[in-house]
């Protein structure tokens, strides 16, 4: 159990690292949202599942799973709201053509 938990935590941390790299590297807000809504959600999810496996079946792990479910619903919704708000304000996504024009 503990070994499986450690492996899951490792994978989760890797995904979190990818999120941060994506957040820094990707060209515009909308593409960054991709990195956040996908890798960050699964990253924190795997870390929490890993921690729950370390704990075993107790009330604490039940609460961890509850928090996990909440994050799985809340994270995409938050990303969705932010992009929606950005589009309403009139920020248009970056496209390949834009980068060609800049050069």
């Amino acid at each position: 159990m503990a070994i499986a938990g450690t492996v899951l935590i490792g994978v989760g941390l890797f995904l979190m690292a990818v999120t941060v790299i994506g957040l820094i590297r990707l060209p515009d807000f909308y593409t960054r949202t991709h990195a956040v809504s996908k890798t960050d959600t699964l990253g924190i999810g795997l870390v929490l599942v890993g921690l729950a496996l370390h704990e075993g079946v107790t009330l604490v792990s039940l609460k961890i799973v509850l928090g996990l479910l909440f994050i799985f619903i809340a994270n995409p919704v938050a990303a969705h709201l932010l992009t929606r708000s950005a589009l309403q304000v009139g920020i248009m996504p970056w496209t390949r053509r834009d980068s060609a024009r800049e050069q």
Partner: peptide, 11 residues
């Protein structure tokens, strides 16, 4: 699958 895809794109 989505995560593998994003990892591929970002890295």
């Amino acid at each position: 699958v989505a995560n593998v895809h994003v990892v591929h794109l970002v890295l």
